[in-house]
Amino acid sequence: MKIGILAVQGAFIEHEAQITSIAARSVDQIECIQIRQRKDLEDLDGIILPGGESTVQGKLLRDLDLFDDLQKLILQGLPTLATCAGLILLARTLENDPVKHLATLPVTVQRNAYGRQLGSFTVSSDVGDINDFPLVFIRAPYITSAGPETKILTTVDHHIVGVEYKNQIGLAFHPEMTRDTRIHEYFLRKVKSWCSCLQCTG
């Protein structure tokens, strides 16, 4: 499996470390590459959109001519794991903001929903079928509304902070900032079933 990590700006090394640590103990062949230019998008089986600044990442996606191809791949069903700024890139709409980016995930997201850095926090919660996952929120967004087909994975204080829609997982928090690899393992299982599904349909 070939996993691409968007590496235009932000905490992409941390995601790579999670995937590499899973790969080291996995029977599957898992390769990880950094995406900085359009040519890096070839032959991917899954993609990770990391945390960072969404304004910067959104601009660089366009400036580096990555935007259209990436959007097309996600709409075709390429498994996608997006955290924090990544969630903002995927959101169909942003609260009180005319800007939108890839707009492939039917949710509305409020940026900087918890305020400035002094509002950053950690909490433990269940994420889908994963129990007691450490959630790290850094100048984080949350989801103010989600489309009917969107599965809600987790909420904190009645705000949605994790969703799944088709092959896209959107999280307001940072699983890559913990030593817990369960969310990345879940994502890789989705990638694996997507790969085998592609093979059976030829």
């Binding site: 700006q9 932000g10 945390g51 960072g52 600044e53 850095q117």
Partner: peptide, 12 residues
């Protein structure tokens, strides 16, 4: 969390 914010600024 504070070290984490710096990590989010990387590559910027």
């Amino acid at each position: 969390l504070n070290k984490g914010l710096a990590q989010m600024l990387k590559g910027g």
